[in-house]
């Protein structure tokens, strides 16, 4: 990405943390040089306590940085008034709301607050923007339902609609997929990705969803205490080994072959070849059972995947058995070794 657009948020030598009683400072992370670009979804990954929330709160302006600079659209963050900042950065938080008694439409209309007058009276223009935001967030069909009637995933969409109605070029989300079921997680992430592309928003979200982040994140920030932030596209980070350093804590292993985390690295090799999809899932089952999918060899057991119900298991001694399911295959291999 040599011809990248100009960043909307740029931090230089930023240090984040808290000021404790008596003016002592507790630094959570320092020397942060980060850039956020329009049209991209950036996922902030890190274990609990790594400082993800502190970083997000600092970028949201909820807490002051301990040092360094944050530039928003080329101007220092501190030069923005609260009003102008609210037109620049929209947030979706994990904070519990009391919005059960208002409708989704009214919730989204709160996003117009930075633009409306003293009494919050909505003009024609505001109504149009609210409707567009509800449609873009995929929650227009529930516009006149109470927020309390929504599922967790729909609530998240309603909050995203609020952030869209705020018409900010930047949207920051704190763990938007936490507490959601699998379908809502995927829906939410796909939605955010679509919004980034179609509306050229710069989206930053913190998440624990490694799979989804690798799949849909244009850029990942890997945050860990005491290490510089690793930033880049998921693929570059994986192939460059950044993930292994970040997640290879005691007993946790990142497998660059599959993009998955395991509790320990499997060492016993089992050869896998054949149909791509079948062999992928055969590999998945082997890893779970403590084997390492490898190239086919005569020195150890190999599986030739013709079809999901035709798995030929070749043993080094020369005999062969056919398994009709992956479960059967696993039991044969486990039994023999």
């Amino acid at each position: 990405m040599a011809m990248k657009q100009t960043s909307v948020i740029k931090t230089s030598d930023l240090s984040i943390g808290y000021t404790l009683k008596g003016g002592r400072k507790k630094c959570v992370h320092d020397a942060l040089n980060l850039s956020l670009y329009p049209g991209e979804v950036t996922c902030l990954l890190g274990l609990n306590g790594a400082g993800k929330s502190t970083l997000l709160r600092t970028l949201c302006g909820f807490q002051p940085p301990l040092g360094g600079k944050i530039e928003l659209m080329g101007k220092p963050l501190s030069s923005y008034s609260q009003g102008s900042f609210s037109r620049m950065v929209g947030v979706v938080l994990t904070e519990k709301t009391n919005a059960g008694g208002i409708t989704v439409y009214e919730l989204a209309s709160l996003g117009r607050h930075p633009y409306t007058g003293f009494f919050g009276q909505l003009r024609q223009e505001d109504h149009r923007i609210i409707e567009e935001s509800l449609i873009a967030a995929g929650i227009a069909h529930k516009a006149h339902n109470y927020v309390s009637e929504l599922s967790d995933g729909e609530r998240q969409k309603a909050m995203i609609a609020k952030a869209l109605a705020q018409q900010c070029p930047i949207i920051l989300l704190d763990e938007p997929t936490a507490f959601l079921d699998v379908t809502s997680r995927i829906e939410t992430m796909v939605l955010l990705h679509k919004l980034a592309v179609e509306q050229q928003k710069a989206i930053l979200l913190s998440t624990h969803d490694l799979d989804l982040a690798i799949q849909l994140g244009d850029c990942l920030w890997l945050q860990e205490k005491g290490r510089p932030m690793a930033c880049g596209t998921p693929e570059d980070l994986i192939l460059g080994g950044a993930f292994e350093t970040f997640f290879s804590k005691e007993g946790i292993v990142f497998d660059p072959g599959t993009g998955k985390l395991h509790t320990e690295a499997p060492t016993v090799p089992v050869g896998v070849e054949g149909d791509l999809t079948t062999s992928y899932w055969v590999g998945n089952a082997l890893i779970r059972n403590g084997f390492k999918p490898s190239l086919v060899s005569e020195e150890y057991v190999s599986v030739c995947c013709n079809a999901p119900n035709d798995l030929r298991i070749l043993f080094p001694v020369g005999d062969m058995r056919i398994a009709e399911s992956i479960a059967e295959m696993v039991s044969i291999i486990v039994h023999k070794s």
Partner: peptide
């Protein structure tokens, strides 16, 4: 009556309200 607008924003909690430009 003058507080109606910030009161509505406060339904979302103080952080959301602050992000909506409420002091």
């Amino acid at each position: 009556i003058l507080l109606i607008k910030p009161l509505n924003a406060l339904l979302l909690g103080e952080m959301y309200a602050a992000n909506l430009g409420i002091h």
